[in-house]
């Protein structure tokens, strides 16, 4: 009976019919208008009910907070682990300082590789922070949907299409989009070439 598009064509047809009948202003047409409005009401209620079944309140109150917490936990765990790795590296470097020259250099070179690898924590942290930010935006949208539908449904209808998902930031703030995914940013070599053009 229902369709995913909430019987949009039928709603439009009924509205057009109502407008036509109201403009005629004939007494007997008012009954027909009433019936058509009731039909419209039923469609809207059905759509509300279907959205309610999707449990938007659960999405807002449970799923998104859970996902956000999990991601925060990843950041915390990787930070702790990286800290431990670096503690160990610093201890190794101290020991290496007491070793014979060549040996100390080799150990130091390997420790440097570990330091370099530890920067993964910064990059993954920034990526996860971006995901958390996106989840918060979804949470706000779901919250506004719930408010539109009313508390009684914890969900409901409307195809309220006025989304404002476009990036509203301006100026310097609009430049903050990193870390870039593969293929989106430019390489260090490209950056060097770009900078040299200013000289």
């Amino acid at each position: 009976m229902s369709s995913p598009s909430y019987q949009k064509d039928k709603v439009v047809r009924i509205i057009n019919s109502v407008i036509e009948k109201v403009s005629l202003s004939k007494e007997q047409e008012h009954v027909a208008v009433y019936h058509q409005l009731k039909e419209l009401q039923a469609i809207i209620e059905q759509a509300r009910s279907e959205i309610g079944l999707a449990r938007p309140a659960d999405i807002k109150d449970k799923h998104i907070p859970t996902a956000t917490d999990e991601l925060d936990a990843i950041i915390e765990a990787t930070a702790t682990a990286t800290g431990s790795i670096m503690d160990a590296c610093e201890a190794i470097e101290e020991k290496a300082a007491t070793m014979p020259g060549d040996c100390a250099d080799q150990v130091s070179a390997e420790v440097t590789k570990i330091y370099e690898a530890c920067s993964f924590q910064d990059i993954t942290g920034q990526r996860i922070t971006k995901v958390v930010s996106t989840l918060k935006t979804i949470e706000e949208k779901v919250d506004s949907l719930i408010r539109i539908l009313g508390d009684d449904h914890h969900g409901g209808a409307t195809s309220h299409g006025g989304g404002d998902d476009g990036d509203q930031r301006e100026g310097d703030a609009a430049l903050l989009n990193g870390p870039q995914l593969a293929g989106q940013g430019v390489s260090q070599e490209e950056i060097d070439r770009l900078l040299s053009e200013f000289d």
């Binding site: 440097t112 330091y115 370099e116 920067s119 993964f120 910064d122 990059i123 920034q126 310097d172 430049l175 903050l176 989009n177 990193g178 870390p179 870039q180 989106q184 940013g185 430019v186 390489s187 260090q188 490209e190 950056i191 770009l194 900078l195 200013f198």
Partner: peptide, 30 residues
């Protein structure tokens, strides 16, 4: 030293007076 690796970022930094720009992740040699 940043993960912001888009051309417009490098240009903005240069125009603001940066002396050099390193994209993360980087190594000791860089």
């Amino acid at each position: 030293v940043t993960a912001e690796s888009k051309t417009e970022n490098v240009v903005a930094a240069k125009q603001a007076g940066v002396n050099n720009y390193i994209v993360k992740p980087f190594n000791a040699e860089t």
